[in-house]
């Protein structure tokens, strides 16, 4: 592990200021950055601890929605009544993420920044991986990739983004709020992660020194649900996950927003399906056909054909769950 300097920012302004140094990394919950440094994924010269930065951990109502401070701990977000009652999909997604201990440390702003869990990317000794060493190739493409992408991959990278909360946030049309000395941005969660066709080496659109300060949710979505599929019941990344937020007219869907996780490098909204779901009962047989509309663009790898079937089934099931919420 490379030696690094450590600084504790006392305020948001100081954090931004310190973050402009070359090769600096922000430390929030520390559940990911430390892994990267141990494995050798990165070796920042300067670590800026955000633990003492105040005013960035509130969950509060804003006009038309809710704003979550970036430093709010995952468990605090999930258990906040505004979230648990107004956005069950997000609450569920968080509570199914990681372990209780990690959720007590990890922050909602840090969570989307975690990197892929592709075993080649995470290899201690460094396997060919364009995200690890741009230009080195993609070992997963010719190796073992049955947990990899079915949408939006290229031969340069077939990894999926593993986080749960962003899938819920994508279904909710949430926005990531950032700050930077040259000006902050409002980044839709759906556009936060970078597809390999855009840049296989990148994970997200954050610039050097850009700090996530909050996440804004639009109007509550009480009829929403999150489904996470995995081999074991706890503490594992999703094989496939699905988030749905429904608006209902009696027994019929007026508006549906559905996102899948662990199928692409970003949460994957089923846009074509959403249009066809309007006007259907959540348990209508036509729901399956509506969902299929979004799988026309599915392009499984040799190892991920089974995930197409699973993702379809998961989407159908999560719509049922959301309708029951």
């Amino acid at each position: 592990m490379r030696d690094f300097s450590y600084a504790r920012a006392g305020s948001r302004a100081e954090a931004l200021d310190l973050g402009q140094a070359d090769d600096a990394a922000f430390l929030a919950g520390g559940t990911e950055l430390i892994n990267w440094m141990r494995i050798g994924i990165n070796a920042p010269a300067r670590v800026i601890d955000l633990a003492r930065v105040e005013g960035l951990d509130a969950v509060e109502e804003i006009e038309g929605g809710v704003r979550i401070g970036a430093l709010a701990r995952l468990n605090d977000v999930a258990q906040n009544p505004l979230i648990a009652e107004g956005y069950p999909v997000l609450s569920h997604a968080i509570l199914r993420a990681a372990s209780a201990q990690i959720r007590n440390l990890a922050t909602i702003g840090g969570n989307p920044v975690q990197r892929v869990r592709c075993p080649y990317f995470r290899a201690n000794e460094g396997a060919p991986c364009n995200k690890r060493e741009p230009g080195s190739g993609c070992a997963a493409l010719n190796g073992i990739h049955d947990r990899h992408a079915i949408f939006g991959w290229t031969e340069d990278c077939v990894a999926v983004h593993p986080a749960d909360p962003p899938v819920a946030l994508a279904a909710l049309d949430a926005v990531i709020v950032t700050d930077h000395p040259e000006g902050g941005r409002l980044i839709p969660v759906r556009e936060f992660h970078v597809l390999p066709s855009q840049n296989p080496a990148w994970h997200d659109v954050l610039r050097a020194g850009e700090l996530i300060v909050g996440i804004e949710l639009p109007a509550p979505a009480p009829r929403s649900a999150y489904l996470k599929i995995r081999e074991r019941e706890s503490y594992e990344y999703a094989t496939v996950s699905a988030a749905a937020a429904l608006e209902m007219d009696g027994g019929v869907i007026r508006r549906a927003r559905v996102a899948l996780g662990s199928v692409a490098m970003r949460p994957w909204r089923l846009v074509a399906a959403e249009a066809r779901l309007a006007g259907l009962a959540p348990d209508a047989p036509e729901v399956a056909d509506a969902i299929d509309a979004s799988f026309a663009e599915a392009r499984p790898l040799s190892g991920t054909e089974w995930k197409v079937r699973l993702a379809r089934n998961a989407a159908r099931r999560v719509i049922e769950l959301a309708a029951e919420a």
């Binding site: 869990r117 075993p119 995470r122 290899a123 201690n124 000794e125 396997a127 070992a139 010719n142 190796g143 073992i144 995995r230 081999e231 074991r232 019941e233 706890s234 503490y235 594992e236």
Partner: peptide, 19 residues
């Protein structure tokens, strides 16, 4: 791994055991 001849996952994150 069929190409690299290394274990795909050499940790407890990539190899599931019961919780």
């Amino acid at each position: 791994d069929p190409v690299l001849g290394r274990w795909l996952s050499k940790d407890l994150a990539g190899v599931a055991i019961p919780t």
